[in-house]
C-alpha cells in the first residue's frame, strides 16, 4: 500500500468493472485498499451500484475476514482450531492479553496491534499456531508469544 490515500471513486469504478454486482468480491477489493471497510466507502458503493446498504452490511458482518473497524499496523491471528484448542491456544490468547491488554477482536489504543482468532490455519501439525503480519509461527508456548511480541515492539521503537 502506498502512502497516498487511495481515490475512492477510482477504486469503486475499477471494482465494479471487475466484479459487477457481486457484493463479496467488491468488499474484498475495497478492503485490499483500505485494510478495512470504511462506512463512507460502503455508502458510496451502495449509491453507485444500487445494492441496498443493508445487503452490503449483511455480507460485511457475515464473513469472518471482512472488517468494519480499522486494522492495526500489526495483525495477530491466533488459530483456535480444534487441535490448537486442545494444545493450548487459549493460553496464547491470555498471554497476548497480558502483554498488550487486548482480547480477540480488539485493537491496542495506540493502533499498533489487532488480535483476531481464526477458525483454522490448516497447519494443525504444528499446533498451537499463530500468524503475525503474514508470518506463521508454530508449536508455541505463552513464553514464545511474549518474545515474538516484544521483538516486534522493540523493532517498532527503533524504527521510530
Amino acid at each position: 500500500m502506498s502512502n497516498k490515500l487511495p481515490d475512492v471513486e477510482e477504486i469503486l469504478e475499477g471494482a465494479v468493472k471487475k466484479h459487477g454486482l457481486a457484493v463479496v468480491p467488491l468488499l474484498q477489493e475495497i478492503q485490499e485498499h483500505f485494510r478495512y471497510l470504511p462506512e463512507e466507502v460502503l455508502r458510496k458503493l451502495s449509491q453507485k451500484t444500487g445494492i441496498p446498504l443493508i445487503e452490503i452490511y449483511h455480507a460485511a458482518t457475515f464473513y469472518n475476514s471482512l472488517y468494519l473497524t480499522p486494522r492495526a499496523k500489526h495483525q495477530i491471528n491466533i488459530c483456535t482450531g480444534t487441535t490448537c484448542h486442545i494444545r493450548g491456544s487459549g493460553k496464547l490468547i491470555e498471554e497476548v492479553f497480558q502483554v498488550l491488554g487486548i482480547g480477540p477482536g480488539e485493537t491496542t489504543s495506540d493502533g499498533n496491534f489487532t488480535l483476531e482468532t481464526v477458525n483454522c490455519l490448516g497447519c494443525c501439525a504444528v499446533a498451537p499456531a499463530m500468524v503475525v503480519d503474514g508470518k506463521y509461527y508454530g508449536n508455541l508456548t505463552p513464553g514464545d508469544v511474549r518474545e515474538i511480541l516484544n521483538k516486534i515492539m522493540e523493532k517498532a521503537a527503533v524504527e521510530e
Binding site: V23, V24, A59, F62, N64, N119
Partner: peptide
C-alpha cells in the same frame, strides 16, 4: 471470505456467486 456454513452446498453456491 470465511464462513464455515459455506461448506454446505447451497450456501457454497451463493458464496461462489459472491453473495452471502
Amino acid at each position: 471470505a470465511g464462513a464455515f456454513v459455506c461448506g454446505e452446498e447451497t450456501a457454497l453456491i451463493r458464496g461462489a456467486e459472491g453473495k452471502v
